[in-house]
Amino acid sequence: MKIFCSKDALLSGVNAVQRAVSNKNPLPVLQGILIQADNQSLQFAATDLEMGIRCDVPAQVTEEGTMIVPAKLFTEVVRKLPDTTITLEEKDQQITIGYYQSEIILHGYDPEEFPLLPDLIEPLSFELPTMIFKNMIKQTIFSCAAEENRPVFNGILLQIEGTNIRLVATDTHRLAYIISEITNSGESRFSGIIPSKTLSEIYRLLRDEDEVLNISYSSNQVVFQFGSIYLISRLIEGQFPNYKQVIPQTCETKVYLSVREFLDAVERASLLSRDKSGANIIRINVENNELRIDQSSELGKISEQIGIEMEGKDVRIAFNAKFLIDALKVIDSDRILFELSGPFSPGVMRPLDNPNYIYLVLPVRTS
């Protein structure tokens, strides 16, 4: 195998696939990136057996072939190469990287041992604008659980029903829900839990110029295709909780307030809210068209007042400050409706100009 290509092309290839390289799998070949040269292009591929990514970049191919390079080392080498035409040559699992009158030789892996990324057999598929999906990921993914003891909470529920696409994420303490319209000529239906790692990669790789995202799916896998990227991922097995039962249909108190004012106040109060146990709890008091946060700790104290419009009962309630901040940072609207029903019921945020987004957060019981 022998090819000529630019440093930028190599870099875009390794950057696209490197997050799919396995760091835990004992199979050495999975710590590599497969590079295949044919038809005047290079195809990069990597997988950890849960997720796989392929990417094509332009190259001048003088001899077709396949090689597997050590991912971490190859990526570091490529980043430090000069901006000139690079030669890649492989012979007997030895990879020679040539530039100017210099060369670097790396030891590769046997391509025969690399598991090929499958193409789905007779998949169902649909398309939607990439910016819509990217925004949907941004507004939900932070609500996934970080711990891996209950896998269904490490993913996001993706549902297709007619012309609606829905993402739902929860870690059992909070829940983010968003729905958008798509063109779904086949009226196909789908419901699957996609690992948060997969969707964070989609978010990272989607670019503004990638206008259309194609999503294909089978019973246990899903494929995302956009630009030169092909990403396949397993679906998480298990039953996602019935989120419709969790979202309150009524409330006792409606609070209309500015997202920016609320976010700034919560962030300031959170600086003084950390107690000895590491908790980051803020106490909110809503009365007389005013939202007040009074916070004190061994670090000091703060009193924040925000002018609001309210309907219904006065309420005192406490929340984990981080759970409020995470949501307020991704809500694109200027104002929200914050629905409350006493100190022990969940709070629900709804952007005033977007009825398709809901964020639910459980309160913290305080003494």
Rank of each mutant, 00 (worst) to 15 (best):
E76G: 05
I160Q: 01
G32H: 10
I132E: 10
S185Y: 10
Q94G: 01
R292K: 14
P151H: 04
P351W: 10
I121Q: 15
P129M: 11
T183F: 09
L205Q: 08
Y359P: 08
A59N: 04
V286C: 13
S296K: 06
V259H: 02
I317V: 01
E298W: 08
R283Q: 10
V330R: 06
S228P: 01
L299R: 02
E181S: 15
A46M: 10
D294V: 10
T130Y: 00
N25D: 14
F4D: 07
T198G: 00
R365S: 14
K72C: 05
D314C: 14
T87P: 03
E201L: 04
K301C: 08
Y217P: 03
P248Y: 00
L213M: 10
L124S: 12
Q101V: 11
N289A: 08
A169E: 07
E211Q: 15
T96W: 04
M51C: 07
I331L: 14
D208H: 02
N288Q: 08
E103V: 00
E287H: 13
V259K: 07
M1Y: 12
F153W: 03
E89T: 13
P346L: 01
D56M: 11
I336L: 04
Y100Q: 15
N15Y: 00
L362I: 08
F262M: 15
A318F: 00
L205N: 06
A279I: 00
P111V: 05
L271T: 09
I165V: 15
D110Q: 05
L235F: 02
Q245I: 05
G155R: 09
E237M: 06
P26Y: 05
R174L: 05
E64P: 08
R19G: 03
G227W: 02
D314L: 12
F338C: 14
Q221R: 07
Q249K: 15
Q43K: 12
F74L: 08
I229A: 01
I165F: 11
I358N: 02
R174N: 09
P82A: 04
E122A: 11
E103R: 09
V17N: 03
E90Q: 10
N280W: 00
S273N: 07
M67A: 10
M51H: 02
F338Y: 13
F319T: 10
L157C: 00
K80E: 06
P151A: 10
G52R: 07
S125R: 07
G342A: 11
R234W: 13
A176R: 07
I33T: 06
D119L: 09
E76F: 02
T62P: 03
Y256R: 08
P26G: 10
L199W: 08
L328E: 06
F240W: 05
N39K: 09
V77L: 09
E127G: 04
P115F: 04
M67W: 03
I282M: 09
F4K: 13
S270K: 09
M1T: 15
N280G: 02
S180H: 10
M136T: 15
M131N: 08
H107Q: 13
Q36F: 01
